[in-house]
């Protein structure tokens, strides 16, 4: 457990008769980019809000950074939850001074983070004069104050243009390469797939699956095979353990635990030469749609 920066155990939350989270448990390994995915209303933001003490769980527990007191842990975590929350009558620079004072670190780091997010020229403008994208950038800058070891980002690309989205994606990769653990909630699956090492998928409060992205998706990889004698191929491969076979478009489609090498060897050992062998990796999006529908 020492390698987990966050452990969540059986967290449940209800709003009246609506069960927003049902016994959700998973661990976030140190150094990962952990995507919390789910359609709107699946409980992503509720879960993050509980972990940041904004909402209170009905049941369950969580532990940050090896069991640090929650408020001390939050000071070491940079967080953006739901919307940028700042004093509208104050400048971006002065707003970050409040965050830094509460965190007890980062007051001298304001220029660096504002520069990193492209807000240095507008640092003395009032928050209420910022565009939606600038507000989002300021919130990310606030999360980066004082070089936190963990970042919690709830829909970090909200309100950003395509260039901004690409910049944030690159920044997440860069920060992760520097050793920062990132927990990111999003419904933009393409974005998540590009940067996440681990995922947890929620649907209506249920945790459907969690783990390394490769593991979550690998069981669903599909292998396409073809041979000159398709009848002989089908008869031979049917006896291979741990797979399912489907016939389509003149090909056999195999799902299960077998790797392409194992399929090739199995067919070869039965005197069948494959004329087509293709591994079709399942995208996170198709896996997500399959799980959540």
């Amino acid at each position: 457990m020492a390698n987990n920066i966050l452990s969540i155990s059986n967290i449940s939350k209800s709003y009246g008769s609506i069960q927003a989270l049902k016994n959700v448990s998973f661990d976030v390994p140190a150094g990962s980019v952990f995507g919390v995915l789910g359609p709107n209303g699946s409980g992503k933001t509720t879960l993050l809000a509980i972990l940041l003490n904004v909402l209170q769980a009905n049941n369950g527990s969580y532990s940050w950074l090896g069991g640090l007191p929650p408020d001390e842990a939050r000071r070491q975590i940079g967080s953006l939850l739901e919307t940028p929350n700042f004093y509208h009558y104050m400048s971006g620079y002065d707003n970050l001074a409040i965050s830094a004072a509460i965190k007890k670190r980062g007051a001298n780091d304001r220029d660096r983070v504002l520069g990193k997010l492209g807000l240095l020229e507008r640092k003395h403008s009032k928050f209420q004069t910022y565009s939606l994208g600038m507000k989002q950038r300021l919130a990310i800058a606030g999360a980066l104050l004082g070089n936190p070891s963990v970042l919690v980002l709830d829909e970090p690309t909200n309100g950003l243009d395509p260039v901004g989205i690409a910049e944030i994606r690159e920044m997440i990769r860069q920060l992760n390469a520097e050793g920062i653990t990132i927990i990111m909630a999003s419904h933009l699956l393409d974005e998540v797939e590009k940067v996440c090492t681990h995922v947890a998928i929620l649907k209506r409060g249920d945790l459907l699956v969690s783990g390394p992205v490769d593991e979550v998706l690998s069981a669903e990889d599909e292998i396409e095979i073809k041979a000159a004698d398709m009848q002989a191929l089908q008869a031979a491969i049917a006896s291979m353990p741990g797979i399912k076979i489907k016939s389509a478009n003149g090909l056999l489609q195999i799902t299960g635990t077998a790797t392409p090498a194992q399929v090739n060897e199995y067919c070869s050992s039965r005197g069948i030469t494959l004329s087509h062998l293709l591994l079709k990796k399942k995208s996170l999006e198709s896996k997500f749609i399959e799980l959540t529908n």
């Binding site: 408020d71 939050r74 929350n85 409040i98 007890k104």
Partner: peptide
């Protein structure tokens, strides 16, 4: 009430204040 309207009460806690 400004703190609630602009959700800065939440941000104060997220940044590390106890409630």
């Amino acid at each position: 009430t400004n703190e609630y309207q602009y959700r800065t009460n939440r941000q104060n806690v997220i940044d590390g204040w106890q409630r």
